[in-house]
Simulated scan of single mutants.
Amino acid sequence: MPDDLLHHVIGPTPYSPLWLWTAIGLIAVLCAWYAAVFVLTSRRRPVRELPVLGAARAELLRRRSARAVRAIGNRYRAGDLTAAGAGAALSGELRTFLHAATGVQAQYMQVDAIADSAAARAAPILAELTDIQFNHRSALDAATASATAEELIRGWT
């Protein structure tokens, strides 16, 4: 074999540095995943007490609950719900929000017990919603109660 053809033969091509950086990035993502799972599942501190995650969770919770309350109010104004049905739906959504925001088991508590808890600011609105739900001669308006509940949820800290 002549020596002039050997300059066309080369050794194996090296690996691209892209594969190395991809592997390092995937390992970093895996470590972050394990750290997040450990932090979020430890029962020593609830998620709402963590600085960044707690604030983001609270904001998303407020937005979702306010949107749900507004939708209930719109359904009442459109005539899809009766006053009693709107009062029940608003009360349920507000109690679910209070449980998620404060940890108080508001779904199972009476209004007087809520007034003595960390969710005391919501007790007057819940009393109005109870009156709308169970008193057919109530002078209170479910649309106004919906707006008040939405305002409470948006301003909750």
Rank of each mutant, 00 (worst) to 15 (best):
I132C: 12
A83N: 08
A106F: 10
R43P: 00
R44A: 04
I132D: 07
W33S: 08
R48I: 03
F97I: 08
V47R: 05
M109R: 14
A88R: 03
E128P: 05
D116G: 03
G54L: 14
A35I: 04
L30P: 14
E93V: 04
L61H: 05
A56H: 05
P14D: 07
L81M: 15
R43V: 02
R121W: 03
A100W: 12
A28Y: 07
G103R: 07
G79K: 06
P2C: 00
A122G: 10
T144Q: 13
Q133E: 15
A58V: 00
A68T: 06
A113V: 00
Y108F: 09
I114K: 11
Y76G: 13
L40E: 01
N74V: 15
G92P: 11
W19H: 11
A68M: 08
A149I: 06
A84G: 15
E151S: 08
V9C: 12
A36M: 06
A56E: 10
G11Y: 14
D4K: 13
P124W: 00
L50I: 08
R75V: 01
T41Y: 02
R48K: 06
T130L: 02
I153G: 01
A142D: 03
A143Q: 14
P2W: 00
I72R: 01
R70Q: 13
A23R: 14
A36I: 03
A100R: 13
A55Q: 11
A119M: 14
R137H: 04
A100D: 12
A113W: 06
E93N: 11
L129Q: 02
Y108M: 08
R75W: 05
D80E: 13
S16V: 11
R67M: 15
E151W: 11
L152R: 01
S146A: 11
R75K: 10
G25V: 04
S146D: 03
I27R: 02
S138W: 14
V111F: 01
A66V: 04
F97Q: 02
V69S: 02
A143Y: 13
M1N: 11
S42P: 05
L90V: 09
M1K: 15
Y76C: 13
Q110F: 12
R63K: 13
T82A: 00
Y15V: 13
F97C: 00
T82G: 11
W19G: 12
T130H: 09
A28M: 06
E151P: 00
I153T: 05
E59H: 15
A143S: 14
A89Q: 01
W156I: 06
I125R: 15
A149K: 10
L20S: 08
T41A: 11
N135H: 11
V47P: 06
S42E: 01
G87A: 02
R95L: 09
I114Q: 10
A147R: 12
S65Y: 09
A100F: 12
G87S: 07
R62C: 02
L53E: 12
I153Y: 06
L126A: 01
T157M: 03
W21P: 07
I114S: 08
N74K: 15
G73L: 01
A120Y: 06
I153L: 10
A78W: 01
G79P: 03
A119H: 12
L152E: 07
D80T: 07
V47C: 02
F134T: 09
